[in-house]
């Protein structure tokens, strides 16, 4: 499903402030896996997540998604892969303030040309499934942290992606809301989706549903733990 082969990523290469964020990382994630990229801040887990999600390109090495090398794809095809394959949940949620919950959820599919009425129906179905049906017309800035995250999850699901990528999803949530988030992720996994979460929260990586832990430090893979 997802494979990285000797992936290295430099930032500001050739400059005095050059940083090697990922160094020779090779991992393999199978379809339906719930994978955690674990490690302290600066270990490279967010960079690896963005490389997997086609949000940046590796300096060297290969990123293979569904048997396709995406690391050298032109920008347009990268966007296509990103839109059709991945759903992103960001640490800060990154919702667009000033518009409603349902408008935020529909946003990824605006450029696809699907009729607004059809899009809205689809967004409302997802929001209802996530317990957010009553909040669909709320401006997102008026939502609680947990509601904002569920909106972000709904947005990640609108394109019915095979792979969900989440970056530090529980960083701003209390234990109860973190459990709620994990419960949603477990359900998605059971629906056959592949989940990749970058986190250093034990509440996440100690969960039973997690079957692959990639432990990272200083941009390198320190350990890979497979669970059944």
């Amino acid at each position: 499903m997802i494979r990285t082969e000797n992936v290295t990523k430099y930032f500001n290469r050739g400059n005095p402030d050059e940083v090697i964020a990922i160094n020779d990382v090779s991992i393999e994630i199978k379809k339906g896996d719930f994978t955690v990229l674990k490690g302290p801040s600066g270990s490279g887990k967010t960079t690896l997540l963005s490389l997997i999600g086609c949000m940046s390109r590796p300096t060297s090495g290969k990123v293979i998604v569904e048997n396709r090398d995406v690391s050298r794809l032109p920008e347009r095809f990268m966007t296509e892969v990103r839109r059709n394959t991945f759903g992103f949940i960001f640490q800060q949620f990154h919702l667009i303030k000033g518009i409603t919950v349902s408008d935020n959820v529909m946003l990824p599919l605006y450029p696809t040309g699907i009729k607004p009425s059809k899009l809205r129906k689809r967004a409302e179905e997802i929001l209802i499934n996530l317990g957010m049906g009553s909040r669909k017309d709320f401006p997102v800035q008026k939502l609680s942290g947990g509601e904002q995250q569920r909106t972000a999850i709904a947005r990640a699901l609108i394109n019915n992606p095979d792979i969900i990528l989440a970056d530090e999803p529980t960083a701003h949530l209390d234990t109860h809301l973190s459990e709620e988030f994990l419960s949603i992720m477990r359900n998605l996994q059971q629906e056959g989706k592949t989940i990749v979460v970058a986190t250093h929260d034990p509440l996440v990586y100690e969960k039973d549903c997690v079957n692959l832990i990639v432990e990272m430090r200083d941009g390198m893979v320190k350990d890979i733990i497979k669970k059944n």
Partner: peptide, 14 residues
């Protein structure tokens, strides 16, 4: 906002 739109699947042309 531009970064978010790009990340969630908007092309540069969009």
């Amino acid at each position: 906002e531009i970064g978010i739109l790009k990340a969630i699947g908007w092309e540069t042309s969009d």
